[in-house]
Write a protein that binds this DNA or RNA. Structure first.
Lengths: 231, 231
DNA sequence: TAGTGGTCTAGACCACTTT
DNA sequence: AAGTGGTCTAGACCACTAT
């Protein structure tokens, strides 16, 4: 692992563990440089990247401090589909189609920021609302960040829940598109004939890197995404 | 101005002016360093920041290249489609299909928070990116909040721009779904056969109430929505 | 005045891609 | 083999903040 990454992790752990609360001062560039026996430029890079990620705030002449927690005004919160369905007073169920390790294609490797040909974990799960599938979740997981992913029972716990436990998420990006479903997807979604589907591609990061890439496909007739913004 | 900023600007201008199109190679770190008489580390910082901003893509061993422009809109921000398209260095054009007053249906009345049967203004406009329609905008407007809506020329100004001027928006809600386009929409979108479309329903408020309800339909093959969240 | 972060230099070694 | 980006060093000067 690169030296600056090790320093980032060290600082992040102090914050995540609660040892350094909000606004607590972070070790200075010089302090980290001598502690880790690196040049100041290397220590600096670690702190700079944490600042870019919003984890830390730097003030010229004053120092580096743990950033206050952001207000929850996100347009699209990362929601757990099981909770979502249960909050509508409906029954939730799931069906696991695939749960195995496989070799990363080029696309998947790029999404997870690993090398093509490396091993990844893959799960494909249908999520049911009142006995009708509303989502097929195709999920690729970085084995280094969740080594026990394949050992979980995804009937009692969603992959999202498990991953949040072992790798608290710090960042996510989404891509939303409309697609025609494959024949396989039609089966999994219990669609007798193809209909437009809403597809969400979601990459999620923890402090240690990209944890997972998920492709979530929903039948257009059974799903829509909502959001609210205030200015 | 800092040296690395000057280099960033130089590279950005080459791209913005069109001199360096998509995937065009960008001067290497060493080339920029000698050209601007700075150290490689300084030239490197300029390119690195452009990469972080998604303007440029770097590949180890290969070089730095102008990033391909994705037809992608952030759903975190309400943006003006004309600006969006122009910011991708593409041509923008529009075609007005409908611009008239009509009686509000029950659905429209509810969306605009007025009485069914009241008069509303309606516009239907196609928005073109490089001569291909990427959005059909069907918009219902509350006449009380924008009485001159029908008198505008929507070739030089988008409805969104006009409404923001007369009624600064304070709030918005979105609903996103996948649908099969009607025959009429296929015509307006220049689709020879129906394909899954991404549809956004957007209600926007000013301080005085609901200003407008818009139904934005995009061909799935020509459009996707992106977003990024940090925690 | 001492300490901090912001910028910059002139080297270096490495892994990788292209030729 | 030559060129590229990724990492790192051991210095330097500056502007700013706190004391």
């Amino acid at each position: 692992m690169a030296k600056f990454s090790a320093i980032k992790e060290h600082v992040y752990n102090k914050i995540a563990s609660g040892e350094w609360p909000e606004n607590h001062p972070v070790s200075s560039e010089n302090a980290l440089a001598s502690q880790f026996k690196v040049s100041r430029m290397t220590a600096r890079r670690a702190l700079q990247e944490l600042a870019d990620e919003g984890i830390v705030i730097r003030t010229k002449g004053s120092g580096t401090f743990v950033a206050p927690i952001k207000s929850q005004t996100s347009f699209m919160a990362i929601r757990n589909i099981a909770d979502e369905i249960r909050s509508r007073q409906h029954d939730y169920a799931s069906q696991v189609h695939v749960l195995r390790r496989q070799v990363a294609s080029e696309l998947i490797a790029e999404m997870l920021n690993i090398a093509a040909g490396d091993e990844v974990y893959l799960s494909v799960i249908s999520h049911f609302e009142n006995d009708l599938p509303v989502q097929v979740e195709e999920r690729y997981v970085n084995p280094k960040l969740a080594p026990d992913y394949l050992k979980q029972d995804y009937h009692s716990l969603t992959p999202h829940e498990y991953l949040c436990e072992v790798q608290p998420l710090t960042e996510a990006s989404h891509q939303i598109e409309a697609v025609a479903p494959s024949q396989q997807l039609c089966q999994w979604l219990h669609l007798s004939k193809p209909e437009p589907c809403l597809r969400i591609h979601r990459r999620t990061w923890s402090a240690k890197g990209v944890v997972t890439y998920a492709v979530l496909t929903h039948p257009g007739s059974r799903f829509s995404l909502g959001g609210h913004l205030q200015f």
